[in-house]
Amino acid sequence: MRLENMMITAQMEIAPKIFQVTLRGALAQTLETPGQFIHVQIEKSIDPMLRRPLSICDVDMDKQELTLIYRVEGKGTKRLSEKKLGEEVNVLGPLGEGFPIEEVKENDTCLLVGGGVGIPPLYYLAKQLVKKGANVITILGFRSEGDIFLESEFEQLGKVIITTEDGSKGTLGFVTDAIHDLTEEYSVYYTCGPKGMLRAVENSIVSPGYISLEERMGCGVGACLACVCDLAEANVETGKVYAKICSDGPVFKAGEVII
């Protein structure tokens, strides 16, 4: 975990309101697991004031670069999208516990399920899984054909199934429809996206899996208790009944927390 100014070396709009930005700095080399995030101070200002949590989508250790993909939602992400090359943002990270991949073995098949801006952290995960010799099947859910991003990037890593809510491309409906249609067997799944989607995915799959959660944050480091969620069962070691998404998560074992 470090605090450093990182320089914007690339930024472009890859779908309506969806931006891809690349940040350069030594912090990039300290990423531990896919699924970790950074807490970005977009400007030293009083509005926006708080840092914004954004997932790490890709890392280039040699070039010391991190790539993020974000949707313009409000003030903070809007300002970020207006930043020019060469400008700096202050970054705290990498934060949190990401997707565990130690147990995945060569030739295992892993299912990745992402919805909207929950997709980015799955990309570096997919790369790491492929590096271990695993097979990756990715289901990506979007609203409509025009919203699609990262499709060709994921295609280079394995089979990709697109779902759109309006049926303009791929399977009509939600990611869970594609999960039901799936004929392949898989040993583990990983998912990130809106809460409703996570709930539905968790309910439709029996294999073990990992889910990545979002919550509004203050500190990002576990000190303020803004970002908690309830544990399904109290932790046997600590007796705790909650988990902090910023430091115990954002990734949890499916069933471990109540979503």
Partner: peptide, 26 residues
């Protein structure tokens, strides 16, 4: 031990933030 309030527990405002943690503590 208190588990505090439901989330969202923070909201940003210009020049500040609102919090409603609810005295969560072990």
């Amino acid at each position: 031990r208190r588990s505090g309030n439901p989330t969202p527990r923070v909201a940003e405002t210009p020049g500040g933030m609102l919090n409603a943690i609810g005295l969560q503590n072990p």
